[in-house]
Write a protein that binds this DNA or RNA. Sequence first.
DNA 1: TTAGAATTGTTAAAAATTTAACAACAAATT
DNA 2: AATTTGTTGTTAAATTTTTAACAATTCTAA
Lengths: 206, 206
Amino acid sequence: MNNLPDKTVERLSQYRRSLNNQLAKGKTHIFSHEIANLLHITPVQVRRDIMLIGYSGTLRKGYDIQDLVNLIGQIIDTDNGQNIAVIGMGNLGKAFIHYLYEKRTKLKIVAAFDVNPDKINKSYADVYCYHMDQLEEIIAKESIKIGIITTPPEAASELADRLRDAGLKGILNYTPKPLSEREGVYLEEYDMITSLEKVAYFVKNK
Amino acid sequence: MNNLPDKTVERLSQYRRSLNNQLAKGKTHIFSHEIANLLHITPVQVRRDIMLIGYSGTLRKGYDIQDLVNLIGQIIDTDNGQNIAVIGMGNLGKAFIHYLYEKRTKLKIVAAFDVNPDKINKSYADVYCYHMDQLEEIIAKESIKIGIITTPPEAASELADRLRDAGLKGILNYTPKPLSEREGVYLEEYDMITSLEKVAYFVKNK
DNA sequence: TTAGAATTGTTAAAAATTTAACAACAAATT
DNA sequence: AATTTGTTGTTAAATTTTTAACAATTCTAA
Ligand SMILES: NC(=O)c1ccc[n+]([C@@H]2O[C@H](COP(=O)([O-])OP(=O)(O)OC[C@H]3O[C@@H](n4cnc5c(N)ncnc54)[C@H](O)[C@@H]3O)[C@@H](O)[C@H]2O)c1
Ligand SMILES: NC(=O)c1ccc[n+]([C@@H]2O[C@H](COP(=O)([O-])OP(=O)(O)OC[C@H]3O[C@@H](n4cnc5c(N)ncnc54)[C@H](O)[C@@H]3O)[C@@H](O)[C@H]2O)c1
């Protein structure tokens, strides 16, 4: 199950989120068009994605939500979860820690790092903040494989090297400075301004 | 210039960001492959996008950065900028306000809204936070056209209706609850968990 | 018990996006 | 002055992603 289209992988994550909500409401089965409504995409796309991961629903009864959630888990989770570090315990770093803390997911933020003495050696939402000097040590000890960069942009590039050298395999960069690719490290970037300017463009032109 | 592919619009925003950095460093001209490196995409894609917006560089000299920045501005900005509101002055709301405050862009956050008395009637990074009761009034007064939702997810759906009724044309939803489409309102969603699970998937499978 | 409605799974078609290929030509080098 | 090198702009091809179409099947209810 390792040749799924990129876009399908993204949607699987969203399916699971919505499906869990439905489960919480006591629903056990769901139709493709219901999932589609939840995510405002088309039912065909839902059915096709589900086909690609090799799951089958029952005709006229829909998909068993729990089964589907489990299967998605098998595909996108690792068996015992993956440990994550946040580097830069500012507004954004805190927002993410707080956010992930509320969800129970296999992705777990197990450490934060900063250089500011005010932030260090304290916990925020159960995540302990270490000094940057301990970066390599803690990454090794906690076998952290993914890092989220929320420092000021100036620090990002050097930091990414350090993370790579410490053995990280994935980096999520929220800094507005785009990073160059590093061999063996999957890189994902996000800049809010891109989203915002996209909205602005469509507001202007539609 | 209003039939650009979605993906090109997204990239234009990123081009501008990087180009401005280069300008700041005193560079005046740039080659397609340099832009490509900055964003880790291919030079062809850069050239093609630039072609689509109708700009021409000079052979063997590259693109005039200032001209290109100006042209991108003409395409994605409105003439006198666009006013934005943030609803929900928590960690994430603050992070965005702080972030946009530092950039000089035509997109300007002119108001924040919250229900918590601790947050109301104070300014954060020059943005004044109003009580939700004043939402419609301030939106009209400041002719706000775009809203960023950073409240708890429970509030999102009702809020989106209220924003639509108040005349907003674009909504950026950072709440993990996907909103349904509203006639006449461009909607963009972002959920960090999707990015994170995508990284986790590729870390696991590559 | 038959006809009609609803829903899945899948193949095929369409649309969107990215990549390749290369002609044109300016600048640098011989 | 001739040749090589580097770079753009653009058309065409390839790839990826979305949408359409529909056969198969189950349920509902006439
Ligand atoms: N991509 C987006 O959508 C988006 C949105 C908002 C902010 N941002 C960016 O995210 C980053 C953080 O934003 P914020 O509002 O949380 O800023 P912030 O100033 O609140 O937080 C930055 C934190 O990083 C720490 N830090 C500074 N240098 C460091 C270093 N070398 N190593 C480790 N930690 C260091 C600081 O002590 C601080 O705690 C900024 O780069 C900002 O531009 C991005
Ligand atoms: N999409 C993402 O990547 C991402 C990341 C982190 C957090 N989040 C989400 O963003 C939202 C905000 O996160 P946060 O960490 O800033 O939370 P927070 O609790 O710090 O902030 C929420 C703010 O909204 C205010 N609020 C509550 N109800 C409101 C209402 N009805 N109207 C107006 N304001 C109201 C609260 O007073 C508070 O100030 C949450 O929904 C969270 O799940 C999303």
